[in-house]
Simulated assay, not measured.
Amino acid sequence: MNQLDTLTDQQLITTWPHQHERVFAEIYRRYWDKLLAVAYHRLEDLHDAEECVQDVFCKFWALRNNFELKGKDLSYYLSQAIRNQIFTVLRRRYNLRKKSKDITLEEDVHHLTPEKQFIITELTKQFEEAIQALPPQCKLVYLLKRDEGLTVNEIAEKLNISSNTVKHHLKKAHKDLRNNTELLTLLVTVLYLLQKK
């Protein structure tokens, strides 16, 4: 058998059920520094960043017997995991600041803290990624409606399709965006941070 460091991520995951510790150690070696860099960039605290990465790998290890990539690559999975863990730390920081009364009501309503700004930026990014994942025609219809403010009839005329087809595409776009699990999770986090009193 080849050395583990010569295997692709997908091959490692396939091998994982048979060599738990060795495969996990190789994944840890490949991604620890990358995840730590992301966490440190966002949190600006080495201890918190290291704790974030450690938590991600602990949760990852717990999935060793039934982990599946489900069409995504390992890099994508781990980047989403570290992003979610960063949100957890930011939410904890925010709550601690509120409890210590460092954030007044006026600041809470009108001031975008670094934590809030990060969450909003990530939401925007995730939302745009979710739009890009829509089927081509569906995405085009949605963007014409959102970005150009065209009516259903104007879109139908522009694309030479029926108004019912336009309505169908818009309905599908809204449904797909609502059902996007990652986007929904991020949105819930945003609402929690921006609306919690």
Rank of each mutant, 00 (worst) to 15 (best):
H41L: 13
H41C: 10
F57R: 02
A37G: 10
C58H: 12
H41Y: 10
V56F: 01
F57Q: 01
D55Y: 06
K59T: 06
D48S: 15
A49F: 04
F57I: 00
L43Q: 05
F60S: 03
E51Y: 05
L63M: 15
C52W: 00
D45P: 01
L63E: 10
R42P: 00
L43R: 05
A62Q: 15
A39R: 01
Y40V: 01
D33F: 04
L36E: 08
V56M: 02
L46T: 09
E50Y: 02
D48H: 15
F60K: 07
V56P: 00
D33T: 06
D48P: 15
Y31G: 05
R42S: 06
E51G: 11
H47E: 03
H47A: 05
H47T: 03
L46Q: 13
A39I: 01
K34E: 09
C52D: 02
F57S: 01
C58R: 14
L63G: 07
K34W: 02
A62V: 12
Y31K: 09
D55F: 06
L35M: 14
L46D: 08
A49H: 07
L35E: 04
Y40T: 03
D48V: 10
L63K: 15
K59A: 11
A62L: 10
E44G: 03
D33S: 07
E44Q: 14
F60D: 00
C58F: 13
R42H: 11
L63V: 08
D55V: 04
R42F: 06
L43P: 02
L43E: 01
L63I: 11
E51T: 07
A39C: 11
Q54G: 10
W32I: 04
V56K: 00
D55N: 11
C58P: 00
A49W: 03
L36C: 14
V53N: 00
W61C: 13
D48L: 15
D33L: 10
V53I: 06
K34I: 13
E51A: 13
K59P: 01
F60V: 02
C58E: 15
V53T: 05
W61R: 14
L36M: 13
E44A: 08
H41Q: 15
L46N: 08
V38I: 14
A62I: 14
L43V: 01
F60L: 09
E50V: 02
E50P: 09
L46K: 13
E50W: 03
W61V: 09
A39M: 06
L43C: 11
D33G: 06
W32D: 02
R42V: 07
V38C: 13
R42C: 08
W61M: 13
L36D: 08
F57D: 00
W32R: 14
A39K: 02
C58I: 12
F60Q: 02
D45K: 05
Y40S: 04
A49D: 01
C58K: 14
A62T: 14
Y31A: 06
W32L: 08
A62K: 15
H47V: 04
L35N: 04
W32Q: 08
D55E: 12
A49N: 04
W61H: 12
H41A: 15
E50G: 12
K59Q: 06
L35P: 07
L36G: 09
F60M: 05
A49Q: 06
L43H: 03
L36Q: 11
E44Y: 09
K59L: 10
V56C: 02
L43G: 07
L35A: 09
A37W: 10
D55K: 09
H47W: 05
E51H: 12
D55I: 03
A49I: 03
V56N: 00
D33A: 11
K59S: 09
A62M: 13
